[in-house]
Design a binder for these strands. Sequence first.
DNA 1: AGCGGAGTTGCAAACATCTTCAAGTGATGT
DNA 2: ACATCACTTGAAGATGTTTGCAACTCCGCT
Lengths: 110, 110
Amino acid sequence: MGVPLYQRKSEFFRTLGHPARIRILELLSERDHAVHELLAVLPIEASNLSQQLAVLRRAALVVSDRRDGQVVYSVSVPEVRHLLTTARAILSGLVADEDDDDQDLVAASN
Amino acid sequence: MGVPLYQRKSEFFRTLGHPARIRILELLSERDHAVHELLAVLPIEASNLSQQLAVLRRAALVVSDRRDGQVVYSVSVPEVRHLLTTARAILSGLVADEDDDDQDLVAASN
DNA sequence: AGCGGAGTTGCAAACATCTTCAAGTGATGT
DNA sequence: ACATCACTTGAAGATGTTTGCAACTCCGCT
């Protein structure tokens, strides 16, 4: 047994703890995106975006795939979507639990 | 509309992004605990514990209640438990989704 | 009034994360 | 070969978080 689970959990939540990374995950859980597509939507610099994508990659939440001269990212852990909707439910105060999960996540998130 | 939702989400996840806070939430989701009980279990200083509890209080994830000469904390957002079990599922790789939720969280978490 | 247990707060040093700039890689078009 | 688009990497300053110490409050007890 290496790193205790509660510590791995805290690291995991920390990787979700950044506005750009949240938006990236929201966009990617809608559909795969090339980096320049994300860049067109997010108000950050290219190098910053790359850094944030690297954080998500290291945490194995997304994978990148070079196809056709561009780098396409996709979520590799679909359950993240669930985490994001639960977070929204909690923040919306009323916490009506359980899965109205299939609605348009991005539209509902801004 | 004040702070955008994706930013509130990231702040929310950041408050979960600390090993002591994770353990506190796990312990409290088992049952209410007085501060000195938490202190007996966690390997941190009293002042540090107080700071972490303050972080959780500010995020409204826990509430404190002075009863009988001691301060007792309890979780105010039961759905946090769900988040913690989902995180464990994701980290355990196999991501067998959906709720084996009612088992002993603390025993399963160390 | 004075003491000890239970918690909290303020603060500064140590530590981590974020952002930007500059430089670099790789593939594609001319 | 050169330019350009699409991205990534490294490094450094700015900013934020964590930790421990000391000082403090708020009881209840004697």
